[in-house]
Nucleic acid binder design. Sequence first.
RNA 1: GGAGGGAUGGCCGAGUGGACGAAGGCGGCGGUCUUGAAAACCGCUGUAGGGCAACCUACCGGGGGUUCGAAUCCCUCUCCCUCCGCCA
Length: 426
Amino acid sequence: MLDMDLIRKNPEEVMAALSRRGIEPPIGRMLELDSERRGLLTEAEELKAERNRVSKEIGQMKDDKARQEKIEAMRELGERIDGLDAKLRDVEQTLNDLAVEIPNLPDPSIPDGPDETANVVVKNVGEPKQLDFEGLPHWDLGPALGILDFERGVKVSGSRFYVLEGAGARLQRALISWMLDLHTRQGYREMYAPFMVRGQTLFAAGQLPKFQDNLYKDHEEDLWMVPTAEVPLTGLHMDEILDGETLPLRYTAYSPCFRREKMSAGRDVRGIKRGHQFDKVEMYVFTTPEEASDELERMLGHAEETCSQLGLTYRVLELCTGDLGFTAIKTYDVEVWAPGSEEWLEVSSLSNCGDFQARRANARYRAEKGARTRHLHTLNGSGLALPRTLIAVLENYQQADGSVVVPEVLHPWMGGVEVIRPEADT
RNA sequence: GGAGGGAUGGCCGAGUGGACGAAGGCGGCGGUCUUGAAAACCGCUGUAGGGCAACCUACCGGGGGUUCGAAUCCCUCUCCCUCCGCCA
């Protein structure tokens, strides 16, 4: 949610910033509504002040006749107030409906562009691996190793579902544990948060109302499956005023993620790159406006470290205005190279959301005693998405004999399995 | 799922129609006293919106209603607690 005060004071600036996203928000209409709102508010409040004043008098009046007259007058006044309040609610609702649909303002520093083709590669680490044998894509490699079963996934749950088994399931679990431990060492607090949340929490994270179509929901209760751990983590400090001393708050959490993927029907249907359910380890930070920008760079470093410790070739992209997410002011994507399917896989997306989510969450802080409250700034980043990391590990570490070597950092969780072979049934 | 009891400021807790934005206590901040600290005493100590100054308005779990006037009465929802049932 944008700051209405900012829109009021710098409408042209806001329009210009949003036009970089290729959208033309109804700022003019919002200014009208805002002005109308304030007019109604002032009027209603003046009448309420009078009613409060006279009502006090009524309570102390002895003369019954004069008293009845006042009561009658106040009854009429009350009706006028009711009318104004109703109009006010209506205007506020209309204004709010427009406001919640407007995305965050892109950071001035990020590149302009219509879509993902205009994203800028800002860093390359390592060379895309050339296998000196005929490498397999993971959708062939996994089933051949007996660790990935598409048919049974589909039988059980339908398209875009799969089953990991044996060393495959264990490898994913190893990755999760290792990542959580790594982020803990990097200064994040490990959290285990609900995988189902209320609508209010999704609103705070910027998922509702706009992205309702991508979410799974219980059919009779206000409970939704999370599309990312970012959602419950954003909700942690809803309606709180944090002490500035405690900042930054850095959290890491594992969660499954549930997405309908209606928008990408028919895309990436092969393999485990895009499913309705996938696992992810998330990093999340609540901090001050002053620190947010640096914090994004730090978080990027932490995601990069995850890739490099796994020995993966990766590159960092800075998203252009046209590819920027709804809540973000600036986003980096981290992509790893998968030599079997021969493509770059987005394993992490790291965003600075400014105060956009914090406004929706009513999450504030006070820098010091007596200071005014300010909205927190929030950042989120994957560290990393599991299926794609799994793809990269399998495809990068595959050997000519069809086996897969387990990256050394994962050994502590693999129960002695250092090479995954077709016959190895762990 | 059944029965009952609750939700008040950072915390505890009083308050059943007007004098209540809310007693009292704790905590916190400032001051007096003290070499310093403690104790004692005095004062201050919620959030938001509008004017941006005095001031006004709203908020006692959320929403709606009754009333000239609601923390207080009514309806409804949510959450918490106790007992019973069921259950990984």
